[in-house]
Design a protein around this nucleic acid. Structure first.
Ligand SMILES: [Zn+2]
Ligand SMILES: [Zn+2]
Length: 726
DNA sequence: ACCAACGTGTTG
DNA sequence: CAACACGTTGGT
C-alpha cells in the first residue's frame, strides 16, 4: 500500500507510452487479461479520482518524471494499483455503475465518436468515466491520450480508474468496440448535437447511461446551458431554439414582464411565466394578452385615474391602497389586469412572491397595503442598507433619510410599487410608458415606480433617489406632478433603476432562491441577452452615480427613451423584457458592477466606447493581460459581462479577481456543461482541467499573452493602455 | 477538509 | 501545439 500511491507521481509520458504500448498491444490481444477485473469498474464512470496513486508506471520506465518531480515513483505492481483503483472507484462508482454499467458504452458511444480509438485503446478510453456526464467517455480520447492511457491501463494504469473501467469492458470491449465503431459514427453526430442541444442529449443519454448523471461536470446547469453557450451571443434566439422550453419561458417572461411592467409583479410574473411556460404556455399567453391590453388601456385609463390619484396623492400609503381599490373596482383596466396577474402569480408563484409580495397579492388590497407597508418598510430598510453601501458614492444624494420619516417612506417604497405603478401610470398617463417601463425594469416591485415618480419632480430628489427615492415616491404626491415630466423621467430613470436593482436584488434573490432555483438558473442562462440589457442599465446606474455612465447610459436612455416615446406598448415590451431579465441578471450584475465600477470604473468609462470591448480592456488592463481579442470580448461581455463584477458581487469590493479566477462572462464560462469529449474532460482525473469548451477565454488569453504576447497582442495592449491613459 | 479548476512543466 | 499530469489555488 504505502509505497505506491503517491510518490509515484507522474509517469512520464515516455513511461506511459511504453507501458501503454506494450500493454496496449497486449491489451487488445489479451484483452481478457485486463479486463477481467475491471470489468466491473468500467461501468462506473466515475470520476476518477485523481489523486490516486499514480504510480503506475514507474516500473516501466523510470524515465524521467516529467515535470514535477517525480522521480521515481513508486511503483506498485500494476496489478495492485489496479485493484486499488478499482476498489476505490468502485465505491463511488458503484452507484453510477448501477445505472450505466455496461450500457454506458453504448450510451457513451453515442457521443463518442471516437469510439474507435477506444477500440484501440479501448480500454482507456472508457476511462473517462467520470465525465461521462457528457458523453464522451466512450471514446474518445482525443489524442494520444487514448494511446497512452491504453497502455497505461494495462501497465498500470495510470489512471487507475480508467484502466479499470476500461478493463472491465475489455473482454467485451472489443465486441463493443466493434459496435462502438458503428456507434461512433452515430456518436460523432450525436456529439455535435449535444453541443448544440445538450439537454436533449442528456435525456437521451440517460436512457443509455447517462453519463451525465454522474457527471462530474456538474451537469447542474440545466441542459440548456450548452445551447446558450454555443449561442451565447445569439442569446435569445438561440436559446429559444435550442431550449424550447426555457426559451419559451424566457420569452414569455419577457413578454409578460413587458406587459406587466407595472410592478413588482414582474418578478412574480417572471417566475410564473417560467413555471407556466413549462407547465402550460396557455397561461402565459393569457397573461400577456391581458397585460398588453391593460397597458394600452392604461394610457387611457390613466388619465382618469390620474385625477383620482391626485386626490389620493395626499396619502402616499392611502394612495396606494386607494389606487388598488379603485383599480380593483375594475374601472381601471390596469388594475384589473394587475389583479389578474396577481392572482395568477399568486397562484403559481406563490412561493416566491409570498414572502414579500405574495402577501400583498394574496391578501386583499386593503389588507395588503397595510401588511405590505410593514413588509415594505422592512424591505426599504434593507434596501436602504444595501443602497447605502453601494451608494456611498451616491450617498451624497442621500436625501432620503431626511425626508422620509422613517416608516412612511419605507412603506411607500415597498408597497407603492403596485399602487405606485398604478398611480404613476395613472397620473402620468401620457408619460406612463416611462413610468411603467421603469417599474417593470426596476422590477419588481415597487420601488421603481416610486423612484421614477420622485425623480421627475426634482433633481434634488432624483439624486436622492437611491435611498430616499422610493420612500419619497410614495410619500410624495409628486407622482401626479411627476407624470408630466415623463421625458425627464426617462433620463433620471436610469438612476432609479439602478437603485432598485440593488435594493431588490436581495429580494429577488430570495424569491428566486426560495421560489425556484430553476428560474434563477434559467435566468442565468438566458441572461446573456437579458444581462446585456440589464447590464446596461446597471452600468448606467453605476455610472450615473459615479458620473461615468455617459456612454452606456446614453445608450440606454436612448434606447429606452425612443422606444417609450414611440410606442408605449411596443417600447415597453422590449424595454421591459430587457429590464425584467435585467432585473434578474442585475442581481448578479448590478452589485458587481457597482462595486467594480469604482475600481474598474476607468475601464468602464474607457470601454465605454464599446461596451463590451471596454470590459475586456478593463480586465486586461487590470489583469495585465493583453489582448482583448475582439471577437471573444463581445461574447464574454454579453452575459456576464456585466457581470464582471460577478466576483465582486457578493462580496464586493475588492475586485480582487484573483489571478486564477475566471471571468464568468465569456461564453465558455457561461457554459455549464462539459463536453465530455475533449481531452480535459476525458482525463479529468489527472488533468484537473476544466473542459476545453468551458475554459474561460479570459484566462486563456492571459496565459497566452503572458507566455508570449504576440505582436498583435502587444499592440492591442498598448492601445488599451493608451486609451486608459487618455 | 473537500472539491473544482488554474497554472505550469513535460512530452510527443 | 496538444495532451498529460501534477501542484496549487480558490471557493465552499
Ligand atoms: Zn470537454
Ligand atoms: Zn470566462
Amino acid at each position: 500500500m504505502p509505497a505506491t500511491t503517491k510518490p509515484s507521481r507522474r509517469k512520464t509520458p515516455a513511461q506511459r507510452k511504453a507501458a501503454q504500448k506494450v500493454i496496449s498491444t497486449k491489451r487488445q490481444t489479451c484483452n481478457s487479461n485486463k479486463p477481467r477485473g475491471r470489468a466491473t469498474e468500467r461501468p462506473q464512470k466515475t470520476p476518477a479520482e485523481p489523486k490516486r496513486s499514480t504510480t503506475r508506471a514507474q516500473a516501466q520506465s523510470g524515465r524521467s518524471p516529467r515535470g514535477r518531480g517525480v522521480s521515481g515513483p513508486a511503483t506498485e505492481s500494476p496489478g495492485r494499483s489496479l485493484s486499488r483503483v478499482n476498489q476505490a472507484l468502485n465505491v463511488k462508482e458503484s452507484a453510477r455503475l448501477g445505472q450505466q454499467s455496461n450500457p454506458p458504452d453504448h450510451s457513451s458511444e453515442l457521443q463518442d465518436p471516437p469510439g474507435r480509438r477506444k477500440s484501440l485503446r479501448g480500454t482507456r478510453v472508457p476511462v473517462t468515466p467520470y465525465q461521462p456526464p457528457k458523453p464522451c467517455r466512450g471514446g474518445r480520447n482525443s489524442r494520444g491520450g487514448a494511446g497512452r492511457r491504453a497502455a497505461s491501463q494495462q501497465g498500470n494504469t495510470r489512471n487507475k480508474p480508467l484502466s479499470t473501467s476500461i478493463n472491465e469492458s475489455t473482454p467485451e470491449e472489443r465486441i463493443e468496440s466493434l459496435a462502438v465503431s458503428d456507434a461512433e459514427e452515430t456518436l460523432a453526430v450525436s456529439l455535435k448535437t449535444d453541443a448544440e442541444a445538450p439537454a436533449s442529449i442528456k435525456d437521451q443519454s440517460l436512457g443509455g447511461n447517462n453519463a451525465k448523471d454522474g457527471s462530474p461536470l456538474k451537469a447542474d446547469s440545466p441542459p440548456s446551458n450548452d445551447l446558450l453557450e454555443d449561442c451565447v451571443q445569439a442569446s435569445c434566439d438561440s436559446t429559444t431554439t435550442q431550449q424550447d422550453k426555457k426559451a419559451v419561458s424566457h420569452n414569455s417572461d419577457g413578454d409578460l414582464r413587458c406587459v406587466t411592467g407595472v410592478c413588482g409583479d414582474v418578478d412574480g410574473q417572471l417566475k410564473l411565466c417560467s413555471d407556466r411556460s413549462k407547465d402550460s404556455p396557455c397561461a402565459l399567453t393569457r397573461i400577456c394578452s391581458p397585460k398588453v391590453q391593460s397597458n394600452r388601456k392604461r394610457n387611457k385609463s390613466l388619465s382618469i385615474l390620474g385625477n383620482k390619484l391626485d386626490h389620493l396623492g395626499c396619502d402616499a400609503k392611502q394612495d396606494d391602497i386607494c389606487t388598488v381599490h379603485q383599480e380593483e373596482g375594475s374601472k381601471l383596466d390596469l388594475k384589473e389586469n394587475r389583479t389578474d396577474e396577481r392572482e395568477i402569480v399568486a397562484t403559481e408563484t406563490k412561493e416566491k412572491i409570498h414572502h414579500e409580495r405574495g402577501e400583498s397579492f394574496e391578501g386583499d388590497n386593503a389588507v395588503e397595503t397595510v401588511e405590505d407597508m410593514e413588509d415594505m418598510e422592512d424591505m426599504a430598510e434593507r434596501l436602504a442598507n444595501c443602497e447605502g453601501e453601494k451608494k456611498e458614492k451616491e450617498n451624497d444624494f442621500s436625501i432620503n433619510p431626511d425626508d422620509p420619516p422613517p416608516s412612511t417612506p419605507a412603506f411607500q417604497s415597498p408597497d407603492p410599487p403596485h399602487s405606485n405603478n398604478g398611480l404613476t401610470e395613472l397620473s402620468e398617463s401620457p408619460v406612463n410608458v416611462l413610468s411603467v417601463s421603469n417599474a417593470a425594469t426596476s422590477n419588481p416591485t415597487k420601488a421603481p415606480p416610486t423612484s421614477e415618480a420622485v425623480k421627475p419632480e426634482g433633481l434634488s430628489q432624483g439624486k436622492t433617489d437611491i435611498h430616499g427615492a422610493k420612500p419619497q415616491f410614495t410619500g410624495s404626491s409628486a407622482v401626479a406632478e411627476t407624470a408630466l415630466m415623463v421625458q425627464t423621467v426617462l433620463v433620471k430613470r436610469n438612476t432609479p433603476v439602478i437603485i432598485r436593482t440593488d435594493c431588490f436584488k436581495p429580494r429577488i434573490v430570495r424569491d428566486s432562491s426560495q421560489g425556484e432555483p430553476h428560474q434563477l438558473q434559467s435566468l442565468a442562462i438566458l441572461s446573456p441577452l437579458d444581462e446585456e440589457k440589464a447590464c446596461t442599465p446597471a452600468e448606467t446606474q453605476t455610472k450615473d452615480s459615479e458620473g461615468h455612465s455617459q456612454r452606456e447610459t446614453s445608450s440606454l436612455s436612448l434606447s429606452l427613451a425612443p422606444q417609450f416615446s414611440t410606442d408605449a406598448l411596443a417600447a415597453e415590451c422590449e424595454p421591459n423584457l430587457s429590464e425584467d431579465s435585467a432585473v434578474v441578471a442585475e442581481q448578479n450584475l448590478v452589485p458587481k458592477i457597482s462595486t467594480t465600477s469604482l475600481d474598474s470604473s476607468y475601464t468602464f468609462s474607457c470601454s465605454s466606447e464599446s461596451t463590451r470591448s471596454s470590459f475586456s480592456f478593463d480586465t486586461e488592463s487590470e489583469a495585465g493581460y493583453g489582448e482583448p481579442g475582439p471577437s471573444t470580448l463581445p461574447i464574454s461581455w454579453g452575459p456576464e459581462g456585466a457581470c464582471l463584477p460577478s466576483w465582486t458581487t457578493p462580496k464586493q469590493q475588492k475586485k480582487e479577481r484573483k489571478k486564477r479566477s475566471r471571468c464568468g462572462m465569456c461564453e465558455p464560462c457561461l457554459r455549464k456543461i462539459s463536453c465530455g469529449q475533449c481531452s480535459c474532460c476525458l482525463n479529468r482525473s489527472t488533468g484537473h482541467q476544466i473542459c476545453k469548451l468551458r475554459k474561460c477565454v479570459d484566462l486563456r488569453r492571459r496565459r497566452t499573452s503572458q507566455l508570449a504576447p504576440s505582436a498583435a497582442q502587444v499592440s492591442l495592449i498598448l492601445h488599451a493602455h493608451v486609451h486608459s491613459i487618455n
